[in-house]
Design a protein around this nucleic acid. Structure first.
Lengths: 333, 333
DNA sequence: TTGTCAAATGTAAACGATTACATTGGTAAT
DNA sequence: ATTACCAATGTAATCGTTTACATTTGACAA
C-alpha cells in the first residue's frame, strides 16, 4: 500500500502539499494539484485511516461505535440497517459490538471502541443505570441512546411511544370483544417493559376492565421464556381469550406454544405482539402487531449522533417516534 | 485518556519498560514491573489500539473485516454471531460491512477496511468472479469465503453441502408421494443456486420423475420475488403439488402468497425450504426446512481466518458442512 | 584494580498522516 | 533599489505505540 510519501515523491512535491490536495485546501496551484492527482491515481493511493486517526483528535475518525444487546432480535437488525444507511451516506463506518446481554462483554466492547477512537456511540443500555454507559457520558463522549434512556442522566434518545403503541393494541383487542386479556411482559427492569405495561393498564382502565395480576406474567424477553409463560397462561383455570406479547421474540415463542397445542388463532386464542417483522404476513394467520419503525430509529439516532459529534454542546434531544398498529388476522376481524 | 508516557512518568521508568511489561517481555525486573503495574492501574490505562496498529504491520490489529451481502437475511445473522463469538474468544473485533448486494458499496467497504489495516477478511462474494475480492486475494490479504467460493482462485472456504441438502429435501417430498415438485431457485449466477439445482435434479432423476422446466422458476433470491414466482407456479394450468424454495427469504415470500390465497399447507400445497430459521416452529404449520449450521459456518470461517493470519502460507482449506433436514409439518406426514 | 559479560533499562527511529510555522519567489509600491 | 506582502510550497513536530540498538549497572573473574 502506498503512502503520502510515495505520492509526494512521484509528484515531486512535499507530503504537505499532497495532504493539502487531499483535503481540498485551495491554496495549491492548479498544475501542481494536477500532478499530485495524477500520482495518486497512478499509485492507487488511499489514505491510511489509522494514521489519520492517530494524528489528531480534532479530525473525526468517521467511525461510530454501536452497542447492541442482541443481534438476533430482528428489531435491532432493522435499527442497524438504519444506522448503517445513514452512516454510509455520511462517509462513516459502524463497528458493531453485539454484547448479547452480557455486561462483561459490554464493558470490553466499550473499552475497545474507546481505544479505537470512535467518534461516538449509539447504545441500547442494558438497564437504565448502566454504569459503563454513564461513565462514558460523563467522560464527554458523544452518545445517543436508542430504545431506552438512562436514569438521572441527560442524553440524546431515540425511541418509540411504547405506552401509546400498547394502548392501541389492547384497545383493538377490546374493540373486538375481548375482556380477559393476558400480557406476557418483558424483563422487569427495562424501561420499555414499564412503559408497555402502562399502555396495557391505561387501556384496561379506560374500558373498565379488570386488571387481573394472574394473567400478567413477566418473561425474560426471549423466545423460550415467551413460549413458557404463554403455556402458563393457557393452563390457567380461567385462561385469557387474548394475549398481548411485549416483544417479537416473546411473540414467536407464544406462537410456538399455541401451535403445539393445536389451538386456532384467533378462534381459540387471539394474539397481538409488540414489534412487527417483515415476514408477519407469512405467518398463518398473518400476525397483528405493533410496528416500531426500526430503520427510522436507526437513521435518526445516527443523525443525532453525527450532529452531536460536530457540535458537542448542542442541547439534549429526545425523539419519540410513533408506532403503527398493523392489523392483520391474529385477533379476529 | 492516559498514554504510555503518563504511565512511564508515574512509575519513574521509560516508555520502553512500560511497553515491555505490557507485552509480557520477561526481562523486566520484578519490582519495576510491580511499580509499572501499579501505575497502569492507578491511571486506568488501556493501550491505544490505533497507535499500536500504526506502528507495526508485524503485530496483528486484531480486527477482522466482514463483508456481508445482506444483514437482513437471518442466515447471515447466524453466521455473524458465529464469527463474532469466535473472534471475541480470541481477542478480536469484527467490523461488519453490509453491502446490500451493491457492488459500489462493497468496493467502498473493502477500501475502508484495508485502510483500517484489518488483519483479514471474511467474505460472501457477490458472485464467483467478484473482481474486488479477487484483487484482495492476489494482494495477499488473508481471506476466507463463506457460503460461496471463487472461480479460478484458490481460497479458504466454508460452506455447506448444498446438493446433498436439497437432495434430501426433495427425496423427502417424493417419499411422501409427491411427483410434481416445483422449484423456486435463487439468483441465476450464484454458485449456491446451481448446486441446489443439481440436488433437485439428482433426486428427480433417481426416482425417474419428469423434470419439467415449466415448474422451475428462477427468482431474485428475495422475499418479493419469492412471493411472485410462487404465485406464478400456483397459477399454472397444471400446478405442482409441492414446492421447494431455495432460501429462507424465498420461502417466506412463498408462504405469504400461499396464505393470501387461502390454500392449506400441506393439503393443498406442500413446501420445503432451504435455510432453517429459529422461529420455524412458530409458523403454522411448522416449516420443514433444510438447516444450514450458520453459527458453525461463522465459527469455522473465523477459525480458518485466524489460522491463516498467523500462518499465511498454510495450504488452502475447504470445509464443507452437512445440512440437516428439519422435518416438521409443512410437507404432510 | 581492571576487564568482561549479562541483565536491566533507556534512547530514539519508525509507522502515515496533519498542520503550525518557516521559507521561497515573485509582484507591486515606494 | 529597497521594502512589503502574498501566494505557494516545504520543514518538522506531533499523535501513542513498538523495538533495534545503546547505555548503565553490578557481579564476578583475572
Amino acid at each position: 500500500m502506498s503512502s503520502l510519501k510515495n505520492v509526494a515523491d512521484m509528484a515531486g512535491v512535499s507530503v504537505a502539499t499532497v495532504s493539502r490536495v487531499l483535503n481540498s485546501d485551495d491554496v495549491v496551484k492548479e498544475d501542481t494539484k494536477q500532478k499530485v492527482l495524477a500520482a495518486i491515481k497512478k499509485l492507487n493511493y488511499t489514505p491510511n485511516r489509522v494514521a489519520q486517526r492517530l494524528r489528531s483528535t480534532k479530525t473525526n475518525s468517521r467511525i461510530i461505535g454501536l452497542l447492541i444487546p442482541d443481534i438476533q432480535n430482528p428489531f435491532y437488525v432493522d435499527v442497524i440497517r438504519g444506522i448503517e444507511d445513514y452512516a454510509y451516506a455520511h462517509n462513516s463506518v459502524v463497528i458493531i459490538g453485539n454484547f448479547s446481554q452480557d455486561e462483561k462483554k459490554e464493558k470490553l466492547y466499550i473499552d475497545i471502541l474507546k481505544s479505537e477512537s470512535v467518534d461516538g456511540f449509539i447504545v441500547a443500555p442494558s438497564n437504565e443505570k448502566d454504569v459503563y454507559i454513564k461513565a462514558l457520558i460523563e467522560d464527554g463522549f458523544p452518545i445517543v441512546c436508542i430504545d431506552r434512556g438512562m436514569k438521572d442522566v441527560d442524553v440524546d434518545l431515540v425511541k418509540v411511544d411504547n405506552q401509546q403503541g400498547v394502548f392501541n393494541a389492547v384497545q383493538h383487542l377490546i374493540g373486538l370483544g375481548h375482556t380477559r386479556i393476558g400480557h406476557v411482559t418483558g424483563k422487569p427492569f427495562l424501561p420499555t417493559t414499564h412503559e408497555r405495561m402502562a399502555g396495557y393498564e391505561e387501556a384496561m382502565k379506560m374500558y373498565d376492565l379488570e386488571i387481573d395480576p394472574e394473567i400478567i406474567v413477566s418473561s425474560n424477553s426471549d423466545y423460550d421464556s415467551g413460549a413458557e409463560k404463554t403455556a402458563h397462561l393457557l393452563e390457567l383455570e380461567n385462561p385469557p381469550t387474548a394475549i398481548f406479547t411485549a416483544n417479537n421474540l416473546i411473540t414467536l415463542g407464544a406462537l410456538d406454544t399455541i401451535n403445539r397445542r393445536g389451538l386456532r388463532i384467533p378462534e381459540d386464542i387471539a394474539i397481538v405482539g409488540f414489534d412487527d417483522v417483515y415476514w408477519a404476513n407469512s405467518l398463518n394467520p398473518p400476525l397483528t402487531a405493533v410496528r416500531q419503525p426500526g430503520f427510522e430509529i436507526g437513521r435518526r439516532s445516527c443523525e443525532l449522533l453525527i450532529q452531536r459529534i460536530n457540535k458537542p454542546d448542542r442541547s439534549v434531544a429526545s425523539i419519540i417516534l410513533k408506532t403503527e398498529l398493523m392489523i392483520r388476522k391474529s385477533c379476529g376481524s
